[in-house]
Computed example of a mutant assay.
Amino acid sequence: MVAIEPDAIWVETTQRGGCSGCSSQGSCGTGLLSGYFSSASRIRVALNSWDPDDIALHDTVVIGIGENALASGALLVYLLPLISLVLAALGGQALAGEFGAMAGALIGLLGGAAVVRLHSRRHAADPTYAPVLLHLETSR
């Protein structure tokens, strides 16, 4: 955690590869690449019922989002571009053969990605998709 506000905390998240816990990470090429490409970002997490006096800077916290938000978000992000790619490719093939299928696939993929981005921006302030503080591990 990097900052505390009266009603929220700012958390620095680190995305790691799947093999970040492996004992041979230092000698494995995949482990070295995952360390190189890992990224950190800062997000605001509402405190809800947590008391800000119980939290100190540099505490380790566990955050999460609701199961429904995770499932619907995953379906939207992964399936919508794929379905729009296939449908646009089939439509393009019916209209213009092989070239139409390739162009339709590209247009469908980009269109699906644009819809996902629009949905993401529209629901950016939706508390359903906001992370919540689940557990606190103090550094004291």
Score class of each variant (00 low, 15 high):
136 L>S: 04
43 I>P: 00
23 S>T: 10
55 I>C: 07
13 T>V: 06
107 I>F: 14
11 V>L: 10
123 H>Y: 11
69 A>V: 07
36 Y>D: 01
115 V>T: 07
16 R>N: 05
9 I>S: 00
138 T>E: 12
105 A>C: 01
52 P>E: 04
58 H>A: 12
140 R>V: 10
128 T>Q: 12
86 V>A: 09
59 D>E: 07
80 L>K: 13
90 L>A: 14
42 R>I: 13
37 F>N: 09
134 L>V: 15
37 F>A: 13
100 G>Y: 00
106 L>W: 04
120 S>R: 15
104 G>V: 00
17 G>V: 05
81 P>K: 11
122 R>F: 13
30 T>N: 07
121 R>Q: 15
140 R>P: 03
100 G>F: 04
31 G>E: 00
110 L>Y: 14
100 G>P: 01
94 A>N: 11
55 I>H: 06
45 V>T: 03
32 L>P: 03
129 Y>F: 15
96 A>I: 06
102 M>L: 09
126 D>T: 07
61 V>Q: 09
12 E>W: 03
74 A>N: 08
15 Q>W: 04
15 Q>R: 12
16 R>H: 11
123 H>A: 08
86 V>K: 02
53 D>C: 03
11 V>I: 08
30 T>W: 01
122 R>L: 15
36 Y>H: 08
83 I>R: 08
106 L>I: 08
88 A>D: 08
133 L>A: 10
72 S>I: 11
82 L>A: 15
73 G>M: 08
28 C>Y: 00
95 L>R: 11
104 G>E: 04
